[in-house]
């Protein structure tokens, strides 16, 4: 098996596991239907991108417009991504989680997701609009050649460490008295309130922690595929993660991981193999990583503007 394909799959699995753990914390354990989860992932990805990229005035980057550009070394973009996710969760949570009934919360978050995408797509000077950011530096790419197999294994290792840390945090939260409180709130909010728990405060906390975790997943993804654009985070992406958490068993961290391996990774890779069997020899499914990652953006990304499933790699071909 091609190294690229295998490591590519492992990194995506790691990113999906982290995102599913965040969603499980919010939706599975606490009952917050966060239809905007992908926006937090996107915030983390954009934050990591502008933290690690040089300013847009520098010669190699002048074809795109973006704010910031701080050229910071490796761990900071990832931490910044997590912070961005958490920071975004505060205003959104304050608007959505305080008074609205649960079905309105879900709709408000869904609308947030669609509108955030519209705004970023149209505000070209902020994060380069629809074309998105490209040439995002990879973690430690000055130390190890990012095109080598060693780097692929190294990135898988980094992702695995992130998954382990997130897993430990999530497990601590779920298996603690605090986790029991969250489950009590999910199952019977009125009763939990009667016992002196403050549901708004609990929801806000979980929303922020989940936002930070989702932001981290975005930072990892942006550092791996080296490009990030609005078409990467259309709202159907959130629905895939919901499917993963529901299939795996909501409220159970192990279930979230299983779901992440089954739905976004398993189903999509199986269907990819089906397509490959049909078009044997023509498609580049074994080449794994994006052919567009070293070019600017645009054309290859425009080929699948609206599909439910995340386009794993921008292979620059129309859907089969």
């Amino acid at each position: 098996m091609n190294t690229y394909y295998a490591t590519n799959l492992l990194v995506y699995a790691g990113v999906d596991i982290i995102a599913c753990l965040a969603l499980n914390l919010q939706f599975g354990v606490s009952g917050i239907t966060n239809f905007a989860l992908i926006v937090f992932q996107a915030a983390g990805a954009y934050a990591a991108a502008v933290l690690s990229m040089p300013p847009s005035s520098s010669p190699d980057y002048s074809f795109q417009l973006y704010v910031g550009g701080y050229n910071l070394p490796f761990p900071i973009p990832w931490l910044g991504g997590a912070l961005a996710g958490a920071a975004l969760a505060i205003p959104v949570g304050l608007v959505v989680l305080r008074k609205l009934r649960s079905d309105y919360q879900a709709i408000a978050l869904l609308v947030t997701s669609i509108i955030a995408n519209t705004v970023i797509t149209n505000a070209r000077t902020f994060l380069n609009g629809a074309a998105g950011l490209a040439l995002i530096p990879q973690p430690l790419d000055t130390q190890i050649d990012p095109r080598s197999d060693t780097y692929s294994y190294f990135f898988v290792g980094l992702t695995a460490v992130a998954v382990a840390v997130v897993w430990m945090i999530a497990a601590r939260i779920v298996n603690s008295p605090y986790g029991r409180t969250l489950r009590a709130m999910r199952d019977h909010e009125l009763a939990a309130t009667a016992l002196g728990k403050n549901p708004v405060q609990l929801k806000m906390t979980v929303f922020i922690v989940g936002g930070a975790i989702a932001g981290l997943s975005g930072a990892i993804l942006a550092g791996y595929i080296t490009a990030w654009a609005p078409s990467e985070w259309l709202y159907p992406e959130t629905i895939i993660l919901f499917a993963a958490v529901i299939v795996g068993g909501r409220g159970n961290n192990l279930g979230a991981i299983l779901g992440a391996l089954l739905v976004p990774v398993g189903f999509e890779e199986v269907t990819r193999l089906l397509a490959a069997a049909r078009l044997r020899g023509r498609t580049g499914w074994l080449t794994g990583r994006c052919s567009s990652q070293r070019t600017s953006t645009g054309a290859s990304r425009a080929c699948r503007p609206w599909t439910a499933f995340r386009s794993r790699c921008h292979e620059g071909r129309s859907p089969a």
Partner: peptide
């Protein structure tokens, strides 16, 4: 380009200011 954003901003304002109307 911001037509829908304005529609959304109105929606958010209503949800913040008059959620009882929604309920």
């Amino acid at each position: 380009e911001y037509k829908e954003v304005v529609a959304f901003a109105i929606l958010v304002l209503v949800m913040v200011l008059r959620p009882q109307g929604l309920l």
